[in-house]
Design a protein around this nucleic acid. Sequence first.
DNA 1: GTCTATAGGGCGATAGAC
DNA 2: GTCTATCGCCCTATAGAC
Lengths: 201, 201
Amino acid sequence: MDDAAPVPDDARRGAYPKGVARRKEILARAIEVFAEKGSERTSLRAIAEAIGISHAALLHYFSSREELLVEVLREREDRYRDVDAQRDPTEIVGIMHNAAHRNAAVPGLVSLYTTMLASSLESDKEYARDYFTTRFESVRHKLITRIEAGQAAGTVRTDLDARAVAALVIAASDGLQIQWLLDDSIDISKSLALLDRLLEV
Amino acid sequence: MDDAAPVPDDARRGAYPKGVARRKEILARAIEVFAEKGSERTSLRAIAEAIGISHAALLHYFSSREELLVEVLREREDRYRDVDAQRDPTEIVGIMHNAAHRNAAVPGLVSLYTTMLASSLESDKEYARDYFTTRFESVRHKLITRIEAGQAAGTVRTDLDARAVAALVIAASDGLQIQWLLDDSIDISKSLALLDRLLEV
DNA sequence: GTCTATAGGGCGATAGAC
DNA sequence: GTCTATCGCCCTATAGAC
């Protein structure tokens, strides 16, 4: 939160302090909107209307619809980074479980995540694809560290490849959320707790 | 494959024999096209062009773009139903593993599956949502039967809830495919084999 | 059964006034 | 910094000729 420097301290796209603040404000409002309305009506015009500005104003802060939607996901995830970091470093499924629990309150954001993930597979969606590949790689790494810590501490089976487990845990977490979005009788907690038990020594 | 009866023996949408044959032909061609090109350019116009007919002709056989894309997924899946049914009835992860192996050759179809799954979450996509909810429920059921058979045969841990395991296995399978689409260093087989081992007694 | 033509609309993005 | 206006595109779906 500097004041006069023209340096994009936000690490992204040349943005000046005032602009950065407004941008954050817009993102916060967008998160609220998506939490309620989900991946419905995600055109620039619809989002702008929901936020209460024009779609042209939206494009003043985000250079494209794709960038806006990705930044919504990033911002939302960043909010909980510190919370997760404070958890027991040998917990593995626990941190996904925690995220799933938070997400249960905002199916709209889970739906947006899924929609953007699918669209990132298209060749002209570089911005989204970069976000997801980087995100997956970083989450896998975080998990690998935890898995190895758990193995060293004797709470996790040592006959398992950490990277394969990490990919599996993320996959389970993402996949269960989708099944749950389609059928809320699916019990994400139950399946994740089960996976946790399977990994135990 | 009857001949003159106006009954939709295809179980769907009033279609007459000649029409059914042509419809299947179109679906087969569409599967080829998607296998190559994936979830790119999936507009009716683009699909029609790739197949070599007009988009209006396409709509003569499928009442909407949504229906066409769902039927592509259904047709493709139906092709392997018998193959799976013949496998050892106590195999669990094996049948997902098998599907994953088939899919590795056609990332385009996996990508289409993911895109349609995401879009089925939107409220105006009833046709797609019906397909996916029914499909998930039926795959879960198939797996539950296998899990219980495995438990009875003594090859699967008996301290696990079959439905929770089923949801987990499907989630893992779907989720790993997505990670693999974004990063082909992800080893689906390795993670699935690992899950298989975890379920063993 | 397949085509061409077109209706009819939403979209992302830009230009330029204030 | 935000707006209105508009461009130009692509889309789904339909109508009607052949």
